[in-house]
Design a protein around this nucleic acid. Structure first.
Length: 477
RNA sequence: GUCCCCAUCGUCUAGCGGUUAGGACACAGCUCUUUCAAGGCUGCGGCACGGGUUCGAUUCCCGUUGGGGACGCCA
């Protein structure tokens, strides 16, 4: 059997869409599983809308996802000769004809047909031109597009997921192959490229099913080998329609910026429309590659479930070791302007271990951990009412200040011992000491184990913050 | 409107003629606990409908309904 060659062919008219990332991933897994090649091709034949910036974003997104390519990126804009040649050949052999219709002319006729309640299909106006008319148009210097003359008959293919899909050619209009500006259209460029790149399996979204017969017609006209087609179900928005910009976040870079881990994101994407038939949910890349199999693809579109993504992400964060996490977190701390020079690297790692138990997003390492690096600016309002403005908080904090001043080590068992002793001696509930302290030290009512976080806040800052809290309480009373 | 695709808990899914229809997320409750998470336990909840085929259909076939996609000189 010959080598498997697959590709992803994003269009640089926007960011890398999660749907594109999804098909990229499946193609990549398929190639890696079977020792094939994964090729990247940039489909930039739409010169009006394609930009270099988007090419960079797409490349960055793929890299972030850890989806590496073996060949490319190829740019369609650099392969015009191939298309030109193929078009010339097709025209010479009578598969194409020149269409001089303008957009407006077509639109006008289209409207009429639709108003009369019929389905529109290009009316072959230019196929039926007389020689005189053609000559007149040429003399006029009218630009023309090249259309494919769709023959009568039936076009069928065997989809790797859906089985046989057939379509009456009557349903297919004479589609444009080369635009009047000389650029090839998608359907044409794809065929030329997939063929010349030796693509054996075309795995793409099922929104391309309707393009496939057109492409097969072109393969046949060009006398080329037709690849295998596998049409993947789409990723759906909450309302089950195709996921789009309007319906939520679709750019891969946005997920990166929101604090998702690439491995978690890939894990989530992999499970959207494919299942390894096990009870497991968390898979390493290697496992995904080993388990990936077209037989276990789903045919129905899958709703992008943000809650599950979040859960998977938190699973990854919790099980990742601190050193690795540090690489992701450090830039975020820098960006937030945190001064972490008071901590040694080892301390920072232990700090990460402490925070990661409760983190769901990488941004949580900033949002719910600022008190390790910065002074407490404000207190949670509900917490103030509950833990500060009562009959015991002030006295307890005063007492704690005193007792904590007397110890030098702020290791968890030492500080905890201070609290336990007070509890023992006074018989009060530990919570009456712990909750006010937490609020004083962090400004929050939730967070890691108090004695563990206290270790990192340290004696000096702990005492200062208790003092500040006492002042706050006095002012509020 | 025409053509095409799809159909198991709210969501992602396992299932490939005989199962108490399994798991995960979410949700609810309990538990653990210095808070919040995490963890543990429990609960809620599903084969769209109607015909066949068969001793027997979630599973196979047909139809209905529902959802989605494509109908560009976008990709």
């Amino acid at each position: 059997m010959s080598e498997i060659r697959v590709r992803i062919a994003p269009s640089p008219t926007g960011y890398l869409h999660v749907g594109t990332a999804h098909t990229a991933l499946y193609n990549w897994l398929f190639a890696r599983k079977n020792g094939g090649k994964f090729i990247l091709r940039i489909e930039d034949t739409d010169v009006e809308r394609s930009t270099k910036e988007m090419v960079d974003v797409i490349l960055d997104s793929l890299k972030w996802l850890g989806i590496d390519w073996d060949e490319g990126p190829y740019y369609q804009s650099e392969r015009f000769n191939l298309y030109k040649e193929a078009a010339k050949k097709l025209e010479k052999e009578g598969f194409l004809y020149r269409c001089y219709c303008t957009k407006e002319e077509i639109e006008e006729r289209k409207q009429k047909v639709i108003e009369s309640g019929k389905a529109w299909k290009y009316d072959r106006h230019c196929l039926n031109l007389t020689e005189e008319q053609k000559a007149a148009y040429e003399r006029e210097g009218r630009p023309y597009a090249l259309r494919f003359k769709v023959p009568e008959g039936m076009t069928a293919f065997n989809d790797g997921l859906h089985g046989e899909i057939r379509r009456d050619n009557k349903e297919i209009e004479d589609f444009v192959v080369v635009r009047s500006n000389g650029y090839p259209t998608y359907n044409f460029a794809v065929v030329v490229d997939d063929s010349s790149m030796g693509i054996t399996h075309v795995m793409r979204g099922e929104d391309h099913i309707s393009n496939t017969p057109k492409q097969i017609l072109l393969y046949k006209a060009l006398n080329l080998k037709v690849p295998e087609f596998i049409h993947l179900p789409l990723i759906l928005a909450e309302d089950k329609s195709k996921l789009s910009k309007r319906k939520g976040t679709v750019a891969v870079t946005d997920y990166r910026d929101m604090g998702y881990l690439p491995d978690a994101f890939v894990n989530f994407l992999a499970l959207l429309g494919w299942s390894p038939s096990t009870d497991k949910e968390i898979f390493s890349r290697e496992e995904l590659i080993n388990l990936f199999d077209i037989k276990h693809l789903s045919k129905r579109g899958a709703v992008f479930d943000h809650k599950k993504l979040l859960w998977i992400n938190s699973e990854y964060i919790r099980s990742m070791d601190a050193e690795k996490l540090y690489d992701y977190v450090k830039p975020l701390w820098d960006k937030a302007g945190f001064d972490y020079s008071v901590f040694s690297h080892e301390d920072l790692l232990r700090l990460i271990d402490l925070i990661k138990e409760r983190a769901r997003l990488l941004t949580d390492f900033v949002d719910s951990a600022s008190y390790f690096f910065k002074d407490v600016e404000e207190y949670d309002e509900k917490g103030v009412n509950k833990h500060f403005l009562n009959e015991y908080a002030e006295d307890n904090l005063k007492l704690l200040y005193e007792k904590l001043s007397e110890i030098d080590s702020f290791e968890p068992d030492v500080t905890e011992n201070v609290y336990r002793k007070i509890v023992e001696e006074t018989g009060m509930k530990a919570g009456k000491l712990i909750h006010p302290t937490r609020l004083a030290l962090t400004g929050k009512t939730v967070g890691p184990s108090l004695f563990h976080l206290m270790e990192f806040v340290g004696k000096e800052r702990t005492l200062a913050r208790i003092e500040k809290a006492l002042e706050f309480i006095r002012n509020r009373k």
